[in-house]
Amino acid sequence: MSAPGHTLPAAAVETAALPGYNYAFLDELSKKAIRRATLKAVAIPGYQVPFGSRELPIARGWGTGGLQLTLSLIGPGDVVKVIDQGADDSVNAVNIRRLIERTAPDVTTTTETAAATIIQSRHRIPELKLRADQIMIYQVPLPEPLRVIERREAETRRMHGEADYSRMWVALYEDIVRNGRITRAAGYPVLVHHRHIMSPSPVPRWDLPPLHMAENLSLYGAGREKRIYAIPPFTDVAPLAFDDYPFAVEAFPGRRCALCGSETTFLVPTPDEHGQSYDVCSDTDWCAANRQQKASEA
């Protein structure tokens, strides 16, 4: 029942730059449907909202969930940054950025974290603290944190519905009994808003503390698994842990970035042309900015 005067959005807003394609690739009704699912996700922090994942010119499993969120949100004036494992220059990130540039000509792209209004990411959060006017969008391969202990979807949904998480906790207990610590590295489960257990996408543990009471909105999209979920600004996010086995981020004792010298960032080993391995910042933009600052100080 539409109210008087209510009109549906035009199904197509063609882009001048790319005839035959709609603005931001997806048609307007699809974008509206995705935004609706996003609103529900924001209203229930950590809850996975099913949505009709659309076909895109990249394969499912290559960031289509995050891309659909980005495409449904961008408009004139937006500045988009796309990162893959912290790097702006990986093939996946470059291609997604190009698609956005070609289908939404009034949206600009950047590699600079501070300049972005929307940041789409795979596997990392920028080292720079995000602001309230920025939206972080994550590409999620496996949205269900309980899948490791329960393969039936109906059962995991019931467990979320009843907050029946004791089996998840037992899995962590068993991990500690067998290995002396919780061995989960990427995709470490978190409890959002004291209610839903959520997979933070395969970011390292290093990236979990910034999620707690973050000023920015975080959106998670799983294109293949057809789920959207969210952490609204200023939401309690607690990695699952025990009082006597507290959560800890990755440590890099005595190591520093070979390029910028940083000792306070998430480092990844990178081989050089001689086959030697050295540590560099995973966040390439942060590393470059750090080098620039040091050069100007010198």
Partner: peptide
């Protein structure tokens, strides 16, 4: 899961959060 883990499941459901 282990015998201890089976008993622990009930305690964890009751929000016990200290392994010891």
């Amino acid at each position: 899961i282990s015998a201890g883990g089976n008993v622990a499941e009930r305690l964890l459901a009751a929000e016990w959060r200290q392994i010891k």
